[in-house]
Design a binder for these strands. Structure first.
Ligand SMILES: Nc1ccn([C@H]2C[C@H](O)[C@@H](COP(=O)(O)OP(=O)(O)OP(=O)(O)O)O2)c(=O)n1
Ligand SMILES: [Mg+2]
Length: 1072
DNA sequence: ATCCTCCCCTAC
DNA sequence: TAAGGTAGGGGAGGAT
């Protein structure tokens, strides 16, 4: 481990190598203090809406130019194609058939420019609707008058943007009447007409020499049974250009959906269903602001530059600007990757590098950035949730008391946490006082606290070009240069590399390079671009340090991603403010001129702290709600902080487009353009709530309506229960026969099972997601080993497990998944993506005894399965179970009696801390441990089963854990309980107090991040905490001063130091 | 009305 | 040569 890139996925590796790493201590600190502070917020799971994530890049506003250019969104470029999706669903029932539904939509994938997101157009219609409608169409049109059929013969039509009859519907119409539907406008010369409801000025320019008509032309012609002159339905740009550019830069892709038929029952598919397809226009780009342009060819300049979309590019000839260059597709969507064709021609290569390879899944996940991102997010959520509960429990419970105050000591107990990845860190909960109040309330979702009185202060903290920044920590000589992170290094791939860029430095962005772009595109923009490899381990490590710092300062915290966090610092800011005024009063220095913004000062202090701990820049957006904080962080980037004040909200929002709002992407942009005629927030504000809801849907319309006015009532969400677990691989899937597909399905099922087991859950419903090469797409996609343009299908089935219980049994999952795939009758050579999702999760049950696993079995006839033997199939009804792998009792199911709580294994508990606990509490725990050991668990540590949890956690976490531990559930540690029980006391015991400031949030301190270190972790962790002073010393003098000043302001030590609990630590390690 | 199912969409 | 994963909000329409 150690550094090498480790896979999150391979836990097994981890264990094999360093089991020890896994552990970490958690320190729960409880400060005492009293005070007021407020509340604590508890959140419970709520369900509220929300969540969210954030968007990425770009910043919106432009700061001045001094900096590097801003980013802009990616433009699209183009490159490839997409997929059509069709879903089939099975309903519950058991076996066999089900209905499937399909949906057709097609998406294009582009991988190139696409940014991170997806692209696709959206036209969504519900599948049912489609089913109904399409059939009607077919029937009427085709059916009734089959002959009609060819009225569109000879026409090659491209559907641009959002249209009223959806693109899928139009596609169906076109196809049914003999026309050719073009998903892409990659070759303008091939398209005879463009059908659209709205065009941006740029598009109007681009298409001005083409025949542009409205959807009515097709609809009316179909109804009439004859091709009406398109000129009677000529598209007239009605509203003037409201919109500037078109869109954001989503990739160029579009989706199309087809609708149509769906198959029912088992699918029919084999014949090709008809797809309908719709496409979306590619292009969008973002606008962005102006930013100053930057040096090189600035990528963008104007606010809304023209959009170049793929279409534009293509249509126009060459790119005239660099920017345009960025949009240039590397290859047409329908082009095939020559290198891939060559590689695939070699049987040996295929056997070693595609989905057929035995270790393909592991290798893929080990190197997939998106997989890591997803896993990290899940782990961070768990971590935050645990820390929060811990803190809260501490608070609540007790109520008060006393104690102390004064100094803060802390430390109390340490619980070991383990981490999956081997890193460890500690968490220290701090708490504070009074919190309680919050406590009682508890209930709810928590955190309502601050809201009561007054406005909240929300900060959105995000690392600047995270992967690049992390990589530059050890490559200082590359700072200031155009650098990107991608798999292809050096001269690999030459100028034709399709390797995707995960993150680009701001210098690289000045060339128009953006995340999601292929390396070859980037090289076209900047031949001297420097590439650096992924360092997943480091990202995780830096993230933990980042989270640890933020946890120490926040009243509440929501994990957004590995490099992004939302924190509520209302009480901290309030304290700072109060502290400052207090000091001033005393000193009479009221004169203090500076009306500094406490929130911004606080943000800068946090930035400084993160910088010193990680060596990377974090930007912070501050506002009174989540949405605005996100917008503010965009303006803050790079390396800055920005407080968006209420009075500036209106003018700030006015200059943005709809897709600048978090949660509003390509589809929303297209709908706004098509239905509302504009994407400008300045114009959308004028729209009534009803109009917005009509165009975007009730909830979304409402959200937008409020967002336009700067309103966002969402609370930070720090713990929501998981509702599904899935594994998807849509890369490198290339089978030659059913046996290979079956083998893969079972391997993927094992992965899903591991993930379920790692969280002690089982699922009662399974959905198989399949991507199949679109008939019009080349066998080898434009992107090397990519899925290319595909049709996608989903089919769901109720899982039949032994006791009709939720299952995490790999065999049962595999049997069901294989059964579903089999029912689709696809040619295995056409498969390009496979995904298995488990829903209706339930805590795994232990069912009785031990071991057992449920075995499953369905009867369908599987093809022979290569893999292990599969159980025979029994009937469906209930299956019997038996142990699965005989050989490896692998994962025993986790089982944890539900009645018990989860506690860390006793061996992981820091003894000294334990001893320090109040007698009563200690006795209680001892009793609990004693009873548990007797019963179920085996000794905690003994077992070793190594289960594997492949992709499980990276961060520590609780869950899975343990592999080492015996499998038993015992070891899972659930910090919560511990906390709850221990915390209260601990506080009393130890405590310190510090201030309280923030209560809750325990801070997690990564202890040696590095890695290795194993056991000692605990000691080291402790040591580390004490070493904080060193950190302080390492800070630049001015920073030291700043921190001291803040600490001083806040108050004196005795009481609380106020806010910077963490800082305090930093500053005064010994605090005392 | 309310909940459930089956998607799409978004984000990192 | 590259590693295009995933979970959850929300909408539409059917079931209850
Ligand atoms: N589609 C995506 C989106 C993100 N990431 C990774 C790389 C990024 O470095 C990291 C964080 O995503 P951000 O959107 O925050 O992007 P950056 O941190 O790189 O840039 P910024 O400065 O705009 O935050 O996640 C990725 O690999 N693929
Ligand atoms: Mg970032």
């Amino acid at each position: 481990m150690k550094d090498t890139p480790q896979t999150i996925a391979s836990i097994s590796d981890y264990f094999d190598n360093d089991p020890e790493f896994i552990k970490a201590l958690v320190n729960i600190v409880i400060p005492e203090d009293t005070t007021d502070n407020s509340s604590v917020r508890v959140n419970i799971a709520s369900k509220g809406p929300e969540e969210s994530e954030d968007r990425n890049d770009d910043d919106i506003v432009p700061p001045p130019s001094t900096q590097p250019p801003h980013k802009r969104r990616r433009s699209s470029s183009s490159e490839e194609g997409d997929r059509v999706a069709r879903t089939l669903n099975d309903s519950v029932t058991d076996s066999i058939d089900h209905a499937q539904s399909k949906t057709p939509y097609l998406l294009s994938d582009t991988y190139g420019s696409s940014p991170f997101g997806n692209f696709s157009e959206h036209i969504r219609r519900k599948r049912q609707k489609l089913q109904i409608q399409n059939p009607e169409i077919d029937t009427h049109t085709n059916g009734l008058s089959p002959q009609l059929g060819n009225i569109f013969s000879g026409l090659r039509i491209y559907i641009n943007g959002w249209t009223h009859p959806s693109a899928q519907e139009l596609r169906q119409l076109i196809v049914n009447h003999g026309g050719i539907f073009h998903a892409y406008l990659d070759n303008k010369s091939l398209v005879t007409h463009i059908v659209t409801c709205s065009l941006t000025p740029v598009e109007i320019q681009e298409f001005k020499h083409m025949k542009m008509a409205t959807p009515d032309w097709l609809v009316k012609s179909a109804e009439a049974g004859v091709l009406l002159p398109w000129s009677n339905f000529k598209y007239e740009p009605n509203s003037p250009l409201l919109m500037p550019a078109k869109g954001p830069a989503y990739k160029a892709e579009q989706h199309i959906s087809t609708g149509g038929d769906f198959v029912e029952g088992s699918s029919r598919q084999s014949n090709s269903p008809d797809p309908n397809i719709t496409t979306t226009p590619p292009s969008r780009q973002q606008k962005h602001v102006p930013g100053p342009s930057t040096p090189p060819p600035p990528a963008d300049l104007q606010t809304k530059p023209a959009t170049t979309t793929l279409t534009r590019i293509l249509s126009s000839g060459g790119p005239s600007t660099l920017k345009d260059a960025a949009f240039i597709p590397e290859y047409a969507p329908d082009e095939s990757n020559a290198a891939a064709q060559r590689a695939m021609a070699d049987p040996a290569w295929r056997a070693a590098h595609t989905s057929v390879a035995p270790d393909f899944i592991e290798g893929f996940y080990r190197n997939s950035r998106l997989h890591h991102l997803s896993m990290w997010k899940a782990e961070l959520r768990n971590l935050v949730s645990e820390a929060q509960e811990l803190a809260e429990s501490g608070n609540h419970t007790v109520n008060r008391p006393p104690l102390s105050v004064d100094e803060g000591n802390s430390a109390v107990m340490n619980v070991v946490l383990d981490n999956m990845d081997g890193k460890t860190w500690t968490e220290s909960g701090v708490d504070e006082d009074v919190s309680l109040k919050g406590a009682h309330l508890v209930k709810g979702k928590g955190k309502e606290k601050a809201s009561d009185n007054g406005e909240r202060v929300i900060m959105h903290c995000d690392f600047d070009s995270f992967f690049v920044s992390a990589g530059l920590v050890d490559r200082p000589h590359l700072r200031g240069k155009p650098v990107v992170v991608c798999h292809s290094q050096g001269a690999q791939g030459g100028r034709s590399s399709t390797s995707e860029i995960a993150s680009a430095s701001y210098e690289a962005r000045s060339f128009g390079i953006k995340g999601g772009m292929s390396l070859q595109q980037a090289r076209a923009l900047c031949p001297d671009i420097i590439t650096i490899p992924y360092e997943f381990q480091r990202y995780k490590q830096l993230s933990l340090q980042f989270y640890t710092i933020l946890m120490a300062h926040a009243d509440d915290l929501q994990a957004v991603s590995v490099d992004e966090v939302l924190i509520d610092v209302t009480s901290s800011v309030r304290r700072i403010k109060a502290g400052i005024s207090l000091v001033q009063d005393k000193e009479g220095s009221s004169a203090a001129p500076d009306h500094r913004d406490p929130a911004e000062d606080f943000a800068e202090a946090i930035r400084t702290q993160v910088r010193s701990a990680t060596g990377c820049e974090v930007s912070i957006g501050i506002a009174h709600n989540i949405m605005l904080a996100r917008l503010a962080s965009r303006k803050a980037k790079p390396a800055g902080s920005y407080h968006l004040l209420q009075e500036d909200v209106s003018s700030f929002i006015e200059n943005l487009d709809i897709d600048d709002l978090h949660g509003f992407g390509y589809a929303a942009y297209q709908k706004a353009q098509g239905k509302l005629g504009t994407t400008s927030l300045r114009e959308l504000v004028q729209k009534s709530r009803a109009v917005l809801c009509d165009a975007l849907g009730k909830g979304t319309g409402e959200t937008l309506y409020k967002a336009l006015r700067g309103i966002d009532d969402r609370k930070l969400e720090s713990d929501k229960p998981r509702r599904s677990v899935s594994c998807d691989i849509n890369y490198g899937i290339r089978f030659e026969n059913n046996e290979q597909a079956e083998t893969f399905i079972y391997q993927l099922s094992e992965e899903v099972a591991r993930r379920l087991q790692s969280i002690s859950m089982g699922g009662r419903s399974l959905t198989l997601k399949i991507m199949k090469r679109d008939p019009s797409a080349p066998v080898e996609a434009p992107k090397f080993m990519g899925h290319g343009l595909c049709e996608s299908f989903t089919k769901q089935i109720a899982v039949i497990a032994p006791r009709s219980r939720a299952t995490s049994n790999p065999k049962i999952i595999g049997d069901h998944a294989w059964k579903l795939l089999n029912s689709m009758n696809f040619n295995p050579k056409e498969l390009r993506g496979i995904g298995i999702q488990m829903q209706k999760l339930e805590k795994a049950d232990l069912s009785s005894g031990s071991g057992y696993q449920e075995q499953s079995v369905l009867d369908f006839k599987p093809v022979s399965s290569p893999r292990k033997e599969r159980p025979e199939k029994v009937e469906q009804a209930e299956m019997v179970d038996e142990s699965t792998g005989t050989e490896d009792p692998t994962a025993p199911p986790q089982t944890v009696p539900e009645t018990t709580y989860d506690l860390p294994s006793f061996s992981r508990v820091d003894r000294s801390v334990f001893e320090a606990l109040p007698d009563d509490l200690r006795a209680e725990l001892e009793t609990e441990y004693r009873s548990r050991s007797v019963t179920p668990a085996v000794a905690e540590e003994d077992v070793k089963g190594k289960n594997r949890a492949r992709s499980t956690s990276v961060f520590s976490d609780t869950s899975p854990r343990k592999e080492k531990m015996g499998v038993k559930g015992t070891d899972r540690l659930n910090v919560k309980h511990i906390t709850k029980q221990l915390a209260p006391k601990s506080r009393a015991g130890l405590s310190a107090k510090k201030n309280t400031l923030f209560h809750k949030r325990p801070a997690m301190i990564p202890s040696d991040v590095g890695n290795s270190v194993k056991l000692k972790v605990s000691e080291e962790d402790l040591r580390k905490m004490e070493m904080d002073p060193e950190v302080f010393l390492s800070l630049p003098p001015d920073v030291q001063r700043e921190q001291l000043a803040l600490a001083r302001h806040t108050k004196n030590p005795g009481k609380g130091a106020i806010s910077y609990a963490t800082q305090r630590k930093v500053l005064k390690p010994a605090k005392r």
